[in-house]
Amino acid sequence: MSFSASLRDVTLKYGDTEALSDITLALEPGKIYGLLGRNGAGKTTLLSLLSAFRRPTAGEVLVDDRPVWENIDVVSQVALIREGGDFDDTDTVKAAIEIGALRPSFDLDYALKLAERFELPLDRKVNQLSRGKRSVLAAVCGLASRAQLTMFDEVHLGMDAPTRDAFYKELLAEYLDRPHTVILSTHLIDEVANYLEEVVILDRGRIMRHENVEAFQGMGATLTGPADAVDAAAVGLEVLAEQRLGGTKSITVASALDAADRGRAAAAGVEIGPVGLQDLFIHLTDPDRTGA
């Protein structure tokens, strides 16, 4: 059993400012979603609604087809892990982990195993942890919650690259072992791209795109090969990103190539690959393009 999540005509205002504007979104159960958006796009606000941290100004928020607000059967199975976690800073790491036992699904043994693996000092106080270790503690608590809908909001901040890699792998292993719904909100798009099944892009409080990863990758292409051949193949295409090393050039274009173009490019020695999600994200949310 894993939870679906949906927002219907949801608006959320902070005073006079609309953080989310008339959003409708449906997330199927049992998938890993990426929630992308520029700073202030409304990602955290959206996650706060799904976890009943906040109430919408208008509209309906459903998790597992049930209203999430004050619904004990739902919220006990929903976990939002915010950057740095939500802890009493004067608690020890062990106590901060143990409070997770408020969830019936919480797996304390798994949490302690992860704490050992990620070298969390159980006897140290939370406020004595480095930013990276604090993020690890939050991630450990999120994984061990064994919730049906788990959301990680920039939880990787402060983690070093090996720790982030280990966290993503543990997340995937846990997901494969126990299918549930996961939402990853992050700016490190390329790092998580391989783990995602669907991607939601928020832009200025609205859903800009919601597609599976393959659909995003089909929205563009990466051309790599001899610089002249690449330039020739890219004539008339919108170039999103460009890299050059000696005589070899790699460009990302914002449109898929048809069969004839692919054939000509291949004949000229140009390799065609899927577009990088991060390049596409940058392109899609470019203020010049979106009229901001």
Partner: peptide
């Protein structure tokens, strides 16, 4: 902290 641990406000 308690809301983050999946408790309701009630």
């Amino acid at each position: 902290i308690l809301v983050a641990q999946g408790m309701t406000r009630r």
